[in-house]
Deep mutational scan, measured.
Amino acid sequence: GSLMYASIFGNVSAIIQRLYSGTARYHTQMLRVREFIRFHQIPNPLRQRLEEYFQHAWSYTNGIDMNAVLKGFPECLQADICLHLNRSLLQHCKPFRGATKGCLRALAMKFKTTHAPPGDTLVHAGDLLTALYFISRGSIEILRGDVVVAILGKNDIFGEPLNLYARPGKSNGDVRALTYCDLHKIHRDDLLEVLDMYPEFSDHFWSSLEITFNLRDTNMIPGSPGSTELEGGFSRQRKRKLSFRRRTDKDTEQPGEVSALGPGRAGAGPSSRGRPGGPWGESPSSGPSSPESSEDEGPGRSSSPLRLVPFSSPRPPGEPPGGEPLMEDCEKSSDTCNPLSGAFSGVSNIFSFWGDSRGRQYQELPRCPAPTPSLLNIPLSSPGRRPRGDVESRLDALQRQLNRLETRLSADMATVLQLLQRQMTLVPPAYSAVTTPGPGPTSTSPLLPVSPLPTLTLDSLSQVSQFMACEELPPGAPELPQEGPTRRLSLPGQLGALTSQPLHRHGSDPGS
């Protein structure tokens, strides 16, 4: 009898404990919600809404976190579960008819179910419309201010047509639940991603989709105040780019002037030289400038040598048109050559190039014969006009050509200096018209024969001689050997007369 009593008592207590286990969990969670309300000092109306929603959600799901349970299964099984949970929507909604099984599984994985109690606001006026909503159960109302403009029910759709707008718009009203509602919502990016994977279904979906109420604000059109608020930074940046392009296009129409201050000032006329910023005076940081632009901040801005204009002085008759350009485009679109090309026009420029290279940067340069637009006047290309890779490749080509020119210049200078040193070592320090008596009659020769300089066969020296023939050397430049009979510069000019005159010897006659 005691054994029977113990078994009955144990079973009854276990049954009672299981009955009250759900209630215990409910009270535990309710205590957490109330502690949250007390800690954050939530006001009474919002506090009442929180408690009511918790009670309804507990009775609806029995305190089970559906998302946590669903995430515990593998992905393939999750797709089947989501397809079952959203079967009513996918079967009865017209846009989803005719979709393949794979497309429906992908869509079912992207849908999220939302449960809303009465009085809950789903979308506020001015919120971004980031999702498309399908009503599965219940009814909602749409308000503009305090005026109800629409009441939607089961199988209705609200949001915005995503295929017509590249960016999400703003809501033009509040969406509030009238009863307990079940909503299926899919985010904008998720829907577009699935439709991109199934393009054959995309056309059918957009053609058959009928949005019951379009929440997009109709005033959000390009150029409206609301649109400016939504895309303020983007609009200002776009206007700045367009104004920069218009100014650079105007600059290219004036090829007669070359400016070292950047493309923003290349198009300024002579009357605007004294102004601080020219056409860019209202925004000094709008356009890029070269490193020399920092010198323009000092006094005497109108007389600054940074602004270059072609000189009108005539060229000498024998002067060549100019050196070879550094870039391939210089032959086609440049009416002034790079300062480095002028360094190779003569030997005198070679000796004085490194010492006063900055001073020569603004000297007169030889002109190319074609009066085409200036290379320095070409505006900086924006990322939309020329690819970045093209600019980098041009810079690399320019750097390689500069290296080759520097190597060639160093070799030419070394060769010229070597020839000058050899000339100085071969010439005796001094010569006299009267020579010392020699031991015999073989001493009648006034000077030792001097062998002429070897013929220069280097390509670089031939180019130097060509430049010497075309360029007029300055007075202080050293002379180079030329073709024809060679003669030492330090010898007297009348050596031929010395050989014809008898030598005057000093000596005593033994017979006297």
Rank of each mutant, 00 (worst) to 15 (best):
P446D: 08
G169R: 01
E297D: 15
H506D: 05
P387M: 11
G359N: 14
L491M: 06
E331L: 12
S202H: 12
A166W: 06
G287P: 06
D196P: 02
Y180K: 03
L375G: 10
E328Y: 01
G153I: 05
S341N: 11
S235K: 12
L495W: 10
L164E: 14
S460Y: 06
E210R: 06
R265Q: 10
S465K: 08
A268T: 08
Q399C: 15
L326Y: 05
L242N: 08
T248N: 11
I221W: 13
R367A: 13
L417Q: 04
A150R: 04
C337I: 11
L498H: 15
A397C: 15
S202G: 12
Q418L: 04
V427T: 08
L395Y: 08
P371K: 10
M220V: 12
L453N: 15
G496T: 11
P492F: 11
D156Y: 01
P305W: 15
Q423K: 08
R367F: 12
L128M: 10
C368L: 08
G511R: 14
S304R: 14
E257K: 07
E297A: 12
T372Y: 08
G355Y: 13
L365V: 12
L456E: 07
P222G: 11
E328L: 05
D356R: 06
R236P: 12
E295M: 04
Q237W: 06
L242V: 10
L491S: 09
P475Q: 07
F213L: 05
G267Y: 11
S393V: 11
T499V: 13
R176D: 01
E324D: 08
A497R: 10
A433V: 08
S410I: 08
P279D: 14
Q494S: 10
G262I: 12
S460K: 13
S290G: 11
I211F: 04
A266N: 09
P263R: 10
G226V: 10
R394L: 06
R247K: 11
E141F: 01
F213I: 07
D396N: 05
G262M: 10
T218S: 10
P310M: 12
A497I: 07
F353H: 08
G496D: 04
S289N: 12
H504E: 06
V464P: 11
L129P: 01
F353E: 07
T130R: 06
L365Y: 08
E472L: 08
L448R: 13
G322A: 14
M468K: 06
E160Y: 03
P317D: 11
Q254M: 13
L183Y: 10
T372L: 10
P325T: 01
I221T: 14
S304D: 15
G232K: 09
A469H: 14
P441G: 08
S136E: 10
L209K: 01
D156V: 02
F353L: 09
E472C: 13
P314Q: 10
D509N: 13
G153V: 06
G355H: 07
M424T: 13
E210D: 09
S303F: 06
K170T: 10
R388I: 01
D156I: 01
E231F: 08
F213C: 08
W206N: 04
Q361V: 11
Y198K: 02
P492S: 05
P291D: 09
S443V: 06
E295N: 09
R137Y: 09
G346E: 08
V450Y: 13
F467N: 11
H184E: 06
R404V: 05
S259I: 08
L195A: 03
Q363H: 08
H504Q: 10
S272Y: 09
L195H: 03
A177K: 01
V175L: 02
G507N: 11
P429K: 05
E231Y: 13
D203G: 09
L473S: 08
T252A: 12
S508G: 08
S136Y: 11
Q254V: 07
P371R: 09
F311W: 08
Q421G: 10
H204A: 13
L456P: 01
L420N: 02
P314D: 14
A433G: 08
L503E: 13
